[in-house]
Design a protein around this nucleic acid. Sequence first.
DNA 1: TCATTACGAAACCATTTGGTTGCAAATGTA
DNA 2: TACATTTGCAACCAAATGGTTTCGTAATGA
Lengths: 106, 106
Amino acid sequence: MRRDVFQALADPTRRAIILMLAVSAMTPNAIADQFDISRQAVSKHIKVMSECELLAQEQKGREIYYHLHADKMKEIEKWLEQFKQQISKRFEQLDEVLIQLKQKKK
Amino acid sequence: MRRDVFQALADPTRRAIILMLAVSAMTPNAIADQFDISRQAVSKHIKVMSECELLAQEQKGREIYYHLHADKMKEIEKWLEQFKQQISKRFEQLDEVLIQLKQKKK
DNA sequence: TCATTACGAAACCATTTGGTTGCAAATGTA
DNA sequence: TACATTTGCAACCAAATGGTTTCGTAATGA
């Protein structure tokens, strides 16, 4: 099983859960109330996100509050930075072509 | 089948392909040469990315050059913005708690 | 004309995914 | 103590995923 933040973001339900937990920690029941799927289905999503260290749990009596480990999202940003860096290479290559065309003219 | 940019990014091979195509368009064979999997496996990844409109093809004789539709990546950035906005709400709530504590002291 | 090359499509397979229902354990409450 | 609530875990299922091999077809070049 692949377990990284990209995998966590791949499912729309998980993305919605992440946006909710970004505001404040919640219990599985409270999260499940917001969706049309079963509590257990939500629990599975929570498990996936826990496995990629996006979530931390805090037991309070019989309730478990899930907190978002927001820093993990930086991995996405890091990749996006890498992506933009590659894009800039494209333009560098274009520049080279233009320079070569210029030299041919001479 | 879910077909969005998040899905496209979920697989590490696809992420690597995207980074390559960000620099310049490539043919399926040229892409496959960079990986240990079969050309057909790469073709499947290309298909997934095409279906979520991340790729555009340009036929040149018997070769097909796949170009990256880099703008599509903005959907990821858009979601990340939304995420950060939610995170900021968390601090607004914290501020409220502090204000309430202050008022209780009086 | 004919072999080669580049590619997509199809069939197949094991594994993963996203969902379900049922159950047991732990905790809080009457 | 008895009962209700919150939760995780296991079993199960259909569909999707990521890979393979095989085949068909269109363009290239000798």
